[in-house]
């Protein structure tokens, strides 16, 4: 039990996918201009990441490894992720039209969010078991959500701030992201696995 908790904390804070591993930077910059959108994106990504890491573990353990087709992992995982994303898109379209419109192009773009494929592949490299894979996928998604929502809240404040002209827009966002990344380095050594 403690192991899973440690794994969760270490994925959310210490090895944060966005600020420490630098995965999933496209939605991190792209969807963070409004907090509402960021929260929607976070939920969609959390759902996709958790399900994708679960499914990719099953596919890898019960189909690819017994047949000796480990070299197909990347291709197969892309297929799995694409299906999960399409499925999520249909569900969101059905349940929340407003969220669907707000997420717009970013929902299909979760397919190409490298953090999702990263979770699936890292699960294999780190030889996680079934439960660990789910915790790892969920933790990565929670870490992504946490950082994305915090960043979007800061960007909303920055939109009203008096920023020198050369730093306006993306420039100040990049600087903020860099400072956040520095801050997250402070968590290094919090959990020793």
């Amino acid at each position: 039990m403690t192991d899973y908790l440690l794994l969760l904390v270490s994925t959310v804070l210490v090895n944060n996918f966005v600020l420490v591993k630098f995965l999933g930077l496209c939605p991190f910059m792209g969807v963070s201009s409004r907090t509402e959108t960021a929260i929607g994106m976070s939920f969609a990504t959390t759902f996709v990441m958790t399900i994708a890491s679960l499914l990719s573990y099953i596919v890898n353990t019960y189909i690819l490894t017994p047949l000796g087709l480990e070299y197909l992992t990347t291709m197969m995982f892309i297929l799995v992720i694409a299906v999960v994303v399409q499925f999520t898109e249909m569900v969101v379209h059905k349940t929340s039209a407003n969220l669907y419109r707000l997420l717009g192009i970013f929902l299909p773009l979760i397919t190409t969010n490298c953090a999702v494929l990263g979770v699936a592949l890292l699960n294999i490299y780190e030889q996680h078991n079934f439960l660990e894979s789910i915790v790892y996928g969920f933790g990565a998604a929670v870490g992504f959500s946490l950082v994305l929502i915090m960043f979007s809240a800061m960007r909303e404040k920055l939109a009203n701030a008096d920023i020198p002209k050369p730093f306006k827009g993306s420039a100040i966002a990049m600087i903020t992201a860099g400072l956040m990344s520095l801050a997250f380095m402070g968590f290094t050594g919090l959990v020793k696995l």
Partner: peptide, 30 residues
């Protein structure tokens, strides 16, 4: 390899096909 990828694609295609019928959206909800 081709067979496994093909079969998986077929299974996933079936799931998506089912979902598109199940979660069909009438008109434009917005």
């Amino acid at each position: 390899a081709i067979l496994v990828l093909g079969c998986m694609a077929l299974v996933f295609g079936a799931i998506l096909g089912f979902a598109s019928v199940k979660f069909h959206v009438e008109g434009d909800p917005l």
